[in-house]
Design a protein around this nucleic acid. Structure first.
Lengths: 242, 242
DNA sequence: CGGGCACTTGATAACTTTCAAGGGAGGTGG
DNA sequence: CCACCTCCCTTGAAAGTTATCAAGTGCCCG
């Protein structure tokens, strides 16, 4: 499903006004668009990319493998997200990025990013902001993982994903397409697949969500938020001068 | 204990060269230095600061309280760290920042940061980098919290703190001052205080560390790293053009 | 129609929390 | 100068949450 509007612009414009010039710069920053199939790596741990990947369509995850082969997903990405904007300055990837579904990905060369930082201060701040939001999400996940029950943590994640998808026009009413397996959810929440299954059943039984195939429907937003102790502040969905 | 060199400059110079001009700009960005006593808030959740706080001396933590009163610490800060540089662009604090010890804190007005982003592209990238390293640490903590045992997680944290303190000249050989209570460590790792105690005893019994009062000594770095599955890549301690 | 993958279920085991209590060190007031 | 209070660390036992192990079901795709 291809959209006309670059979802990154959609995402940034929710946080601050972009000038036409800035939008043009962003559009022209893209050198090429490629397709990555599900379960393929988009970037590998240890890589030193000379471009950053922008997700145009599909779902992707940042992940890390630990010694016993267990995997932890540290970020889930939806269209409009940069997958490794941080590699522009961090240089070496400290984690891999994986396509969860077929992904359409735009490449932005690091030389272009450097040029933007030299010439477009406000646009630079917007890109910086983008990585700051990633950081805010990381902190929220840390809190959820450390101090919430498995059920609350799941509810929290669902709230977040719903809002993030809605923010880039990927929600249809109370429903979003969420093509993520329970095993992947487990790797995201730090739970076993079996427990993910039980937790989802609990949320379903409570009448909070419906989750059939890829279709996730929010049945009771208020109670879901309450169960997940969710507040959206950290997503910075406010439009402000930045 | 006051040092002459601004620890932020020390920290940044480990990652890339700073020009004399840039250093001067950083030094003069500081408007005032204040002291915050242990257990006091430096910034509160919900605040909209118009300046960012740079930690010159002491230990601080970003934290969040969840409903049942439990607390999660999402970042531990050592001298040279910005505590809320992200508030420059995120505007609203999504968490609080607490002094764990008496802290000496410099204030950098957001208007000054904006001026830096307008006029000093490379310095801007270095500040951006600073927040990217925070993000990398968050991801590493997520992995440790989700997929490592309590003991491994603790070992991992100790490795990280030792290196970070060493990087700003706060290590004396294999020893660092770590004035953090076991309760605070629990809030950092997502564990109960009791379990923190048991995990520390295990690391001591294994001959990996000594931890008496505030003095933490690394007794067997190689084995500690192995237990904590620690690799330092994510700390970006390499000097590179950025 | 067979195979594979994702989801589901039940039983047991492991890890971590909670509850309860005692010990030790430092600071403060009488 | 000592008693006492508080905070932190430590220990033991019981409870709770989540993982692991083991199967079985359903569905999509070749």
């Amino acid at each position: 499903m291809t959209r006309m509007t670059n979802p990154l612009i959609l995402k940034l414009e929710q946080r601050d006004r972009l000038s036409d010039d800035e939008k043009k710069v962003l559009e022209s920053a893209i050198t090429r668009v490629r397709i990555v199939e599900a379960d393929e790596d988009i970037v590998r741990e240890g890589d030193r990319p000379n471009e950053s990947s922008l997700l145009l369509d599909g779902f992707a995850a940042r992940y890390k493998i630990v010694s016993n082969g267990r995997r932890q997903i540290s970020a889930l990405h939806v269209p409009g997200d940069f997958l490794d904007l941080h590699s522009f300055l961090l240089k070496t990837m400290d984690h891999g990025v994986l396509a969860l579904t077929t992904c359409r990905i735009a490449a932005v060369p690091h030389v272009t990013l450097e040029k933007i930082t030299d010439e477009y201060p406000h646009l630079t701040r917007m890109l910086w902001l983008n990585t700051l939001i990633d950081g805010a999400i990381h902190r929220e996940w840390l809190t959820a993982m450390g101090r919430l029950s498995a059920t609350a943590h799941m509810a929290h994640l669902i709230c977040e994903l719903y809002l993030r998808l809605k923010a880039v026009g990927r929600a249809e009413g109370d429903m979003v397409q969420l093509p993520i397996t329970q095993a992947e959810l487990g790797d995201t929440l730090g739970l076993s697949t079996v427990h993910v299954n039980r937790v989802l059943q609990e949320l379903r039984k409570e009448g909070l969500i419906r989750f059939q195939g890829d279709a996730l429907t929010i049945l009771d937003w208020e109670r879901l938020k309450k169960v997940g102790e969710f507040t959206s502040t950290y997503l910075s969905l406010q439009n402000e001068d930045r």
